[in-house]
Every structure is written in structure tokens, then in C-alpha cells.
């Protein structure tokens, strides 16, 4: 028989590694994103160097094909990714949680209809739904990207919320609340939401990662934030033609994107293990 420990300090250390690494990566992007609001190394639209220069002391990751500083653009990209991620998750969470709670409380046939609709929506790729929403709006902007991704994510949030809420609604403390005279809105805010929140918030972190990648894809396709917003997806797309002569232009935004996505996922993992541990206490 092997000796493995249950709920022991070693497990605690393991999840704090994921949590810390995730927090470090995400924190770095948050710092850079905030920094862009007050300071940038160069004007992102100024032609500050030669075209397609390699890395140098003046231009840490070189310049693009118009001679603009790439590092400056990547920094702005951090801010845009965070803005879109946060915005999309906020929109998705608001629509999704509202719909999910309504479905959990709805009569059987309405609940079935909502559940089936959500399942169909989820079957479409997030990106496809987002593209349709952008196409339906007049003109691509940062806000249309946020709205589009938020709506695309909301189906996933709604489905999860519905399942989690239904699980809470069968608990005896909900019946006790009803027989204590608590109204349904009160039950939602006092009992249902606090109990599903830990699991939901882990999911929001994962959705944040999805939104960041989807935003890059939208921008890559020209459906994201328009210039002068330097989204990582657009930088990648612009560097595509010169990928053999100046590979750094494609590699750098790729690394930026991957580091944020991994950071967010590690953070979500760390959070989930924390939630699991706490639930394990019960």
C-alpha cells in the first residue's frame, strides 16, 4: 500500500503554486495594462525606427513594417485584452446568471425550452456567434467586440448557473427559507447566489481566458477593435506577411497572448482547488 495523504499540506502547496504562478502572469499583464494609461515608451502610431527592425536596446522586440515600436503596441494589446476579457465576462455573467436563475425557477416546459435553446447555442463555436453579433452591428469597435463575446459566453454561463441553482434549490434550507416566509428574490440573493458563486467564479476565470483568445481571433479576422487599438490579434495579422523576414513580429504577440491565457487558466485552477478544499470541509 502506498502512502498518499488526503487534504494534507502537500496538496495545499501544490494549488498555491498554480495560484501564485497564475496571479504572477495575470498581475504582470494588469500592471502593463494600467501603465499604458499613464506612460508608453513611444507614441504607438509614430514611425520611430526603421521598418521591420530586429530587437535592439531602443526597440525591445523590434518594429513593425511601418517602423512603429512593437513593444509599445504589445503593451496596449495587454490593456485591450484585459478590457475585452473583463467586459465580455461581465456582460456574459450578467445575461447568463439572470437567464440561468430564471430557468431554474421556471415552470417545467419553459425550463426545458430554455435548456434546449442554450444547448443549441453552446453547440455553435463562441467565435462564430461573436462574428454574427459583430456583423449585425454597424461597425466594429471595442464595444461591439465586448458585447459580441459577452453574448456568446452568456449561454455557457446560463447553462452552468441553471444546473448549479437547481442543485441548491432542492436543499432543505431552501424549503426552510420558504416556510420562514422568505420571498423568491430574497432566496435567490441570500441563499442561491452565495452558494453557487464559488463555482461560478472559477468558471468566469476560464471564460476570461476564452474571451481573450476569441478577441484576438476577431481582431485577426478584422472584426475586433479597429486601429489605432493595437490588439494582439491585429498585430499578429499584420506581421503575417513578413513572418519569414521578421519572425519576432509574429512571435511576440503570440507569447503575450499565450502567457495571459495560461495565467488565467492557472488562476482558475488554483481557485477551483481552493473551492473544492472548502467544500471538502463540510
Amino acid at each position: 500500500m502506498t502512502i498518499t495523504q488526503v487534504g494534507s499540506p502537500s496538496r495545499g502547496r501544490r494549488h498555491s503554486v498554480a495560484l501564485r504562478a497564475g496571479a504572477l502572469l495575470v498581475g504582470m499583464h494588469v500592471f502593463v495594462g494600467l501603465l499604458t494609461l499613464v506612460w508608453l515608451p513611444y507614441d504607438p502610431n509614430a514611425f520611430t525606427g526603421g521598418r521591420l527592425e530586429g530587437a535592439s536596446l531602443q526597440h525591445m522586440v523590434g518594429t513593425d513594417r511601418l517602423g512603429r515600436d512593437l513593444f509599445t503596441q504589445l503593451m496596449i494589446g495587454s490593456r485591450i485584452a484585459l478590457q475585452v476579457g473583463t467586459g465580455a465576462v461581465a456582460v456574459g455573467a450578467f445575461i447568463g446568471v439572470t437567464l440561468g436563475i430564471l430557468a431554474a425557477f421556471a415552470s417545467k416546459w419553459l425550463d426545458d425550452a430554455l435548456a434546449a435553446t442554450l444547448d443549441i447555442l453552446i453547440a455553435f463555436p463562441t467565435l462564430l456567434i461573436a462574428m454574427l453579433v459583430v456583423a449585425a452591428s454597424d461597425q466594429a469597435s471595442l464595444w461591439s467586440a465586448i458585447l459580441a463575446l459577452g453574448i456568446a459566453l452568456s449561454a455557457i454561463v446560463a447553462r452552468l448557473t441553471r444546473i448549479l441553482a437547481k442543485r441548491v434549490l432542492v436543499m432543505d434550507y431552501i424549503t426552510a427559507a420558504r416556510t420562514s416566509g422568505s420571498s423568491w428574490p430574497k432566496i435567490v440573493f441570500i441563499h442561491v447566489l452565495p452558494n453557487i458563486w464559488p463555482t461560478l467564479s472559477v468558471n468566469f476565470a476560464l471564460q476570461f481566458g476564452l474571451a481573450v483568445i476569441a478577441e484576438a481571433s476577431l481582431s485577426y479576422l478584422g472584426l475586433g477593435a479597429p486601429p489605432p487599438n493595437a490588439s494582439w490579434g491585429r498585430i499578429l495579422q499584420e506581421a503575417q506577411g513578413t513572418v519569414y523576414t521578421a519572425p519576432l513580429g509574429a512571435i511576440a504577440p503570440g507569447i503575450a497572448l499565450v502567457s495571459l491565457a495560461i495565467g488565467v487558466n492557472l488562476l482558475a485552477d488554483g481557485l477551483r482547488e481552493r473551492v473544492d478544499d472548502r467544500l471538502g470541509d463540510r
Binding site: M1, T2, I3, T4, Q5, V6
Partner: peptide, 8 residues
């Protein structure tokens, strides 16, 4: 048949 994590 002890579950993993328990030792006898």
C-alpha cells in the same frame, strides 16, 4: 479495500 490515502 481501504481507499487510497488511508494506510493500515
Amino acid at each position: 479495500l481501504l481507499p487510497s490515502g488511508l494506510t493500515a
